[in-house]
Design a protein around this nucleic acid. Structure first.
Lengths: 191, 191, 191, 191
DNA sequence: CATGAATGAGTTTTCATTCAT
DNA sequence: AATGAATGAAAACTCATTCAT
């Protein structure tokens, strides 16, 4: 399963999918960048769709792992939420292609989510928010909706960082984003 | 320029692009749904890419118009920001296909934005935020970053509404989203 | 038959056919250059093929007229042949597009010559050569073959003149070509 | 690069291009005659244009080789020129499709010659003529112009032979053409 | 006579996938 | 496992011609 060619193909595909999108990437390009023959892809995956799915699942797992590692041992809702948001930035940093790919694929109809179930990364946020609400740390907001807001904010912040239009320290962007998210949900925060 | 077939093609293309994405939509499908011949598309547009671009620009203009109409005459930063956010929901309601298309295309690499300039809809938010910051109504945040957060939140809220996973009144989702955005930027909101 | 649009279309088509070839010229381009609508072409000609044929015949007639005018009243074979060759250059000068078109079409299979009969311009040369041979002014050569040689030489000389690769006076090129042709056929010319 | 299908496609294309012209030949026809799938053409060439160009260059090289083989070892200008002209006929005989194709493409605008540089076959004639002029064997003519005349004459003679309108022995036509060309350039040929 | 939007058959081109080596 | 030539179905695109105005 973990052949040199296998990994080369995955890496090449992930980069190209992130750069140009899934549909705009040809199997030939993948093979070329991977230094493999066109047919080799089919030794490791049923086809392009299978590769797309596999990369999505793998990336989602990595995302989830990064999140959990980020918030490991932190149980207080506020601190845990802060840690999770920082986890999003950490993942974007460690796996840039996977991060971008995860976003772009989400918008494509390629992957019919296994039912309507939220993917694990979202669940992790939802659970933390639910806990915080129950404990009175967070306001009474629909956890799924609030999770959507926060992840979307973090994604935009990453795009903002990458675009380099504005000169702003990475840590500043992260802190601002974390603070903003907390203001949305924190029960102590009054408007 | 504004022929019946022209409009039919635009409408059909916008719907299909929103439903299945640009790449997954064929010129044949567009023509079929528009009740036109495939060649007709090429009398009005240089090709599929040209159509994609044209629809993007047109949709962006409509978006901008809706925003401006929403906030027309409102100058107080807080009220104006609330109105603009409601404008996003109004646009998603009035032009569902255009709204979805605008999102999906944004993530595709198809459109190389004219430089790095922000599109007009973003500018409108940025200007309002900048005003609010200067007047002390909003806290001192990078306006471009904050705009990104807020638009992303609203988009997610629309997706949330459409997904119908959770039963929640439309107006509630909108109000919650508007409030959440205000908490992010309002100077009075203390944490 | 001779409407302003008619003439504009003919002129535009002749130029474009000469510039890019018949197949590479679209009816739309013709209409555009002629300042007419696409459909107008079909008021005057059955279709593109008809236009091609008509232009060929008209150009061939003009060619023939120029040749006859050039050699008018000259009966001595040598002088008449010289005059006819000069006529080729005169035609190329007066009707550049028609000249080029006549050549290019000849190589295309578009026009199935009416049988194998030589077109009038060739006949004129053939007759002059035949006369000259009978009168002993020219060597005993197959007149059709010799005509082919001479016309081909003149055509190349025109191309040579137009290419402007080498700087050479127009009259010099013509004189050289005429002399060279005479050396081929003249009975007095010994090798 | 030299796959069976590759060669089959080249051969089929060359024949069809010679028979009906480049524009009148479809990729489907080429594939069909070559016994290949249409897509295979695009594994070996970027597109139809690329194929056209490649065949032109290849044919021009073959032409050049035939000419050089014909005149190999012959240095005396008169004898060498005779040999070169016979080389034209030899090429037309050995590679009929390539010969016809070379002519037809030349008149099409498809191939923008690499600058205004003369192709190798012309150069070979030009050099021989230049030598002959310097040695006093040939009269003082512009070598490029004279080359144009001679090649054009030979081409016409080949067309003449192929048309079979007139019954004339192949060798007679060749000898006559060679003699005619010599009369044009030979210094001894007085008029 | 003139127009030009509309047509649709035909053409070129793409690309995921297969298979003999 | 790996290769890469070959495939063919489907896609984008062209353009001579028609026809309602």
């Amino acid at each position: 399963m973990a052949t040199p060619k296998h990994d080369a193909i995955c890496e090449a595909a992930l980069e190209l999918f992130a750069e140009h999108g899934v549909n705009a990437t040809t199997t030939r390009e993948i093979a070329e960048r991977a230094g493999a023959a066109e047919g080799t892809l089919y030794r490791h995956f049923q086809g392009k769709d299978d590769l797309v799915r596999w990369l999505f699942e793998t990336s989602a797992e990595q995302f989830q792992e990064t999140l959990l590692a980020s918030a490991d041992g932190i149980t207080a809702p506020r601190a845990r939420l802060r840690a999770l948001i920082r986890g999003v930035f950490a993942f974007a940093d460690d796996h840039p292609a996977a991060f971008t790919y995860l976003l772009s694929v989400h918008h494509t109809g390629i992957l019919q989510h296994n039912g309507n179930a939220s993917p694990p990364p979202m669940r992790t946020f939802v659970d933390t928010l639910t806990d915080g609400i129950e404990q009175g740390a967070f306001r009474d907001l629909p956890p799924v909706l609030a999770t959507g807001w926060i992840i979307a904010m973090a994604q935009r912040a990453v795009v903002f960082l990458r675009s380099e239009v504005v000169e702003m320290a990475r840590e500043d962007v992260i802190r601002q984003t974390v603070d903003a998210a907390l203001r949305i949900v924190d029960a102590e925060c009054t408007l």
